[in-house]
Design a protein around this nucleic acid. Structure first.
Lengths: 142, 142
DNA sequence: ATAATTAAGGACAAAAATATCTTTAATTAT
DNA sequence: ATAATTAAAGATATTTTTGTCCTTAATTAT
C-alpha cells in the first residue's frame, strides 16, 4: 500500500505517541531500534515530520523527539500527507490519468468505494488513540 | 496501489481481451500506443504473461498477441499474481512482518476488511466482462 | 528460398526509492 | 567555557523500478 518511507513514518509516529512526552524525549537510536527501521533513513523521515511540525525535536543531552497535543489529536492521514502519499489514495487502479464517473475505467466504481473506506480509516482515529490501542506486552514483530 | 508493471499488464490484457481474437492479433506497437505505455517495457511484460500462458503470441506477419477463452474467463487477480504483486494485498499497512488477529497492529482489523473487499474486486469479474464494460467510444485517457 | 514482419531475449541506461556516512549545529550538564 | 550529547544537513552509495536498444528467432507472404 504505502512506501517504506510512509510505513516508517507511521510506525515512528505511533511509537513516539505511545512512549514520549515533552519530559521524556526519544532518541533516533531508540526509535529506530523499537520500530525496526534503518536509523539514518528514519532520521531523515523524522526530519521531515519535524519541519512540518507534526512532531518536535531538540538536540543535546536528553534531547530527542517528542509529540504534542495537536498531533496526538490529528488523524494518521496527516502523516501520510506529510510523506506526500495522499495521492496514492486517489489514483486509478489501472493508472489512468483521468478516471472518473463520467469516464470510468472498468473497475472505477467498485474501487472508488474501497478508496473511500481507506480514507475513512486514515482520517477516523487520532494518533493518540491508535497509540493506546498498540499492545506492547505482546511485542509487535516489525 | 500497484506498480507500473502491473498497471500496464492489466491495461494491456483488458485491451487485448477487447480487441483481439485468434484471427486478429495485436502487435506490441498497437497495444502500447492504445494503452499509452512504453513499448519495450510493455513488450517485456507481455513476454511474462505469454510465458505464463495467460495470453498468447505469434511472430511474423499478421502475428502479435491474442487471448483465448481460459484467460477471458479468469479474474484479473491472475494477472496481478503473474506480476508477483498478490502479496501487496496481504501486507500489513504499517509493514509489520507478523500482523495478525492474535498480534495486530492498531489498524489491523479495519484494514483487513478493506483488503478482503479488494481481493473480491480482483477475483469477482472475468477479464472478458471487464473488457466489455470498457467504453471505447469515450476514449480512456491513459 | 527469400524477404518482410513480428515477438523473444539479452545487455544496458535512467530514474526513483532506499539507505549510509560524515560533518555541522544546537543544546545541556559540568 | 568545555565537553558531551543529540538532531540537522549534505554528500554519497545501493537497490529496485522503470525504461531503451540491439540482436536473434520464429513465422508468413511472395
Amino acid at each position: 500500500m504505502f512506501s517504506k518511507k510512509t510505513e516508517y513514518a507511521l510506525r515512528a509516529t505511533i511509537y513516539i505517541a505511545k512512549h514520549s512526552s515533552e519530559e521524556k524525549k526519544l532518541s533516533i537510536v531508540d526509535i529506530s531500534k523499537a520500530i525496526n527501521s534503518p536509523q539514518s533513513f528514519t532520521a531523515k523521515i523524522l526530519q521531515v515530520l519535524t519541519k512540518k511540525k507534526l512532531i518536535h525535536s531538540l538536540p543535546g543531552p536528553n534531547g530527542g523527539f517528542y509529540i504534542t497535543e495537536p498531533t496526538l489529536q490529528a488523524p494518521i492521514s496527516c502523516i501520510i500527507d506529510a510523506m506526500g502519499e495522499n495521492e496514492a489514495l486517489d489514483k486509478c487502479v489501472l493508472g489512468l490519468k483521468k478516471c472518473s464517473t463520467a469516464n470510468p475505467c472498468p473497475l472505477h466504481e467498485q474501487y472508488k468505494k474501497v478508496k473511500f473506506q481507506l480514507k475513512e480509516i486514515f482520517e477516523e482515529k487520532s494518533i493518540s488513540k491508535l497509540a493506546k490501542e498498540l499492545k506492547n506486552n505482546k511485542s509487535l514483530q516489525y
